[in-house]
């Protein structure tokens, strides 16, 4: 069984690395978005293949470990957590690509933003810290890191609605604002979804550590 535990350890390390990679994509996509940096956006966009490839490879490795060792108890729960986390991490990577895409498709000829991106900047900070904490909790099994996660997600949800309402008034004021506002609304939506994916992973980490099924809203 030592071989299994070594393989499991290495799989966990690679999942964490993939998590870092997806989080990196998200941060980069938002940097590109804030600076209207098309070249940087192209770079982020091109990383989507890598995330899909990682998902396939790590999923296969997870299945292989289940097949070979038929794990029990916390090992079983860890693999269950990895299986779900993989899907959510991949989604975060894909939303990052989507954010880059909005920039490349909808805002490609814009020189500067129509307004200061205050709420959006705070939102990416919040979502980034949620994803970072989820990855740390997965690594350390320290559930205290995940305390108050629902409340943090509530703030992100609220920020998304704030951006929506704000953009609605801008669009009513002047229809020329529409391309920017649609982009802001969509990016806010994607960030909010990334926060949700962090919550789903947090739930599975609880299951992995304690065997309890809980709901992180």
């Amino acid at each position: 069984m030592e071989k299994f535990h070594n393989e499991l350890k290495s799989l966990k390390r690679d999942i964490l690395e993939m998590g870092d990679f997806a989080l990196g994509m998200l941060i980069e996509s938002m940097d590109a978005f804030k600076n209207l940096d098309m070249q940087f956006a192209e770079e982020v966009h091109s990383k989507k293949d890598k995330i899909m490839e990682l998902e396939t490879i790590l999923e296969q490795r997870t299945l292989e470990l289940m097949l070979k060792y038929q794990p029990m108890a916390k090992d079983l729960r860890t693999l269950a957590c990895i299986f779900t986390a993989l899907v959510h991490i991949t989604r975060i990577g894909r939303y990052s690509k989507d954010i880059a895409n909005i920039l490349l498709k909808e805002l490609k000829d814009k020189q500067q933003h129509m307004k200061k991106l205050i709420t959006l900047s705070s939102m990416i900070e919040n979502v980034e810290s949620m994803i970072r904490d989820v990855l740390t909790a997965f690594d350390t099994k320290d559930l205290r890191i995940l305390e108050g996660f629902s409340e943090r997600d509530d703030i992100v949800d609220e920020q998304r609605m704030e951006i929506f309402r704000e953009c609605l008034t801008y669009m009513m004021e002047d229809s020329k604002n529409i391309p920017f506002c649609i982009a802001y609304i969509m990016v806010a939506r994607y960030l909010e979804r990334c926060g949700d994916h962090a919550c789903r992973i947090a739930e599975k980490i609880h299951y992995m550590v304690e065997g309890r099924i809980i709901e992180v809203r």
């Binding site: 299994f4 108890a73 304690e210 065997g211």
Partner: peptide, 17 residues
């Protein structure tokens, strides 16, 4: 017992540690 054993000893046995 196999998904969330209460005792450390049980867990160590069924996970091969």
């Amino acid at each position: 017992i196999f998904e969330r054993p209460k005792e450390k000893l049980t867990e160590r046995y069924i996970t091969g540690r």
